[in-house]
Write a protein that binds this DNA or RNA. Sequence first.
DNA 1: CTGAAAGCGCTAACAT
DNA 2: ATGTTAGCGCTTTCAG
Lengths: 345, 345
Amino acid sequence: MAMNGRHSGRPTLEEVALRAGVGRGTVSRVINGSPRVSDRAKAAVEAAIAELGYVPNRAARALAGNRTDAIALVIPEPETRLFAEPYFSDIIRGIGAELADTDMQLLLTLIRTPKERARFAQYLAAHRVDGVLLVSVHEDDPLPDLLEQLEMPAVLNGRRSDLESVSYVDADNVGGARAAVAHLIARGRRQVATITGPPDMYVARSRLDGYRQAVESAAGGLGGFDTALVARGDFTEEGGRRAMRELLVRRPGIDGVFAASDVMAAGARAVLREAGRRVPEDVALVGFEDSAIARHMDPALTSVRQPTEEMGRTMARVLLEEIAERASVRRHVVLATELVQRDSV
Amino acid sequence: MAMNGRHSGRPTLEEVALRAGVGRGTVSRVINGSPRVSDRAKAAVEAAIAELGYVPNRAARALAGNRTDAIALVIPEPETRLFAEPYFSDIIRGIGAELADTDMQLLLTLIRTPKERARFAQYLAAHRVDGVLLVSVHEDDPLPDLLEQLEMPAVLNGRRSDLESVSYVDADNVGGARAAVAHLIARGRRQVATITGPPDMYVARSRLDGYRQAVESAAGGLGGFDTALVARGDFTEEGGRRAMRELLVRRPGIDGVFAASDVMAAGARAVLREAGRRVPEDVALVGFEDSAIARHMDPALTSVRQPTEEMGRTMARVLLEEIAERASVRRHVVLATELVQRDSV
DNA sequence: CTGAAAGCGCTAACAT
DNA sequence: ATGTTAGCGCTTTCAG
């Protein structure tokens, strides 16, 4: 007999069965909420579980059930910094909240190097998680395709393009940008410029679209979409600075700016002040509240806010659903954004 | 026969053994790096593994080996906000880096409610993780004791008191504070005050100790430790404001302030400016760089920095060691802090 | 509705 | 050094 003396001392399902005077199968059914159990048996089992302080062994369950009850939250390298932003922390809180009532575990996976990515691919292939949550995907990110190929349930935060095939939860970037620009126009601003993100990012294109829609639909006097009022940034503060300088050269009369991110708005604001323009009196500034940095720097700044925590909750919920109905139905959820008006100019 | 048709299609250890022409035991030994394997067998097994793309099944391994290869990073409620701070993101990056070469998984556990805490206790009792990483412990946190009682390997970030019995990794708060205050004194500041954290937090007491040591050991003229120069804050910006106001009333001649956190330093700075004092010319300010917020607000501010990422790495390393040598040796590591001088006043 | 039994894939003792 | 074997604790048929 292979007596490996590793009985952990914790009660097992079998002991519960014994105590409840039923078979192991019945205990299992009760635990998993099967309806095919008599009330009597159920009560007995529940009593036994309580008395013994029984907690199912996750590994055994995973082995027998061929699942893991765990999902991975993947943070690609460029985003590990992003970690330090309220945006991200809110997402995680949302995920956590949604998972709290589940017995799903959340695995944190930081992917820095190609080697680590390869390793994670192995993880996936080995089905070591039931699903994957992917934040801030880039257009050329290979992970979503891999996930799809593996038929692994997955939910992205944002999307790679209009045709995103993987499930995703995104914010209404177009609508938010449109609202921001419309706000500026409604406040009497006649020359509203925009600082965009990198054009190979969907989120950046969406926000530019919103800008375009707003200026084009504005009643007379604005002259529609003017490419000279569009400067390209890269979501960094320095990029925002450069773009703002460019804009001031091209159109010195600018009296409003919509920056596609708050970090860029912060850069733009610095340049404007250096140039002697008062913000927001002379030049009104609206940014997208990605990181809340802008708000830190200027609590009075009007900005477009995303329901970030809800985004996290939604991502988790969608993923759980996708896991539950092993069907490969993709879901695309776009949450509304909100213009938070903080200036009175 | 109970034909449960769930063969996942992935190769198993048995198939590897077959292919390599050895027994399953040998394959297991190779996988686990046992030295009791011939080079020949080892090579054959490795080849088979590569050809088949074999990845061990974690659940099976956990079940048979009575371990999980997973550790939990626990974030208590008060800290979920802290998430959004660079400090925390650095810690996580450090942990991730240390774990990258391991096949330990990192589980993220947010504990918000007593109910969730109870549930986590069950997790622990059920040995669903091999170890626990706990950030920013509070003096009255019940988790460390529970961990100890359960003999669960654990490492704290910070400590509850001088007599901390659980393993921990901490920053040299006393030394950092002392250096900060010594710096101010060396720069000719004669009335150096301090804004402390809540006295029931070890970290706050340590920083106050450092302050005291510096003023007491300063050569003449300062009059030693003066309680009127000590104002109590609570690590919040508002607390910093209140404390600063108090100090200005008690000792209007203050020309230097050491705040026990950068957030409080930010509050103090705002009050000083409102009071018409120039910072740092009239009143020099040094804070502990917990969140880097102060640096955001004033890039020129001198501050005490902690090697945060290293802290995370160390926590993970210590935990892995503790898990490996099932012995209950507690380790206490204190990492040096560094005065980052950014002002020239 | 429920007990019995067959594995899930692996580790670790047991024999060689 | 290595093949064999007995479980780890659970889920899921399969028979009643």
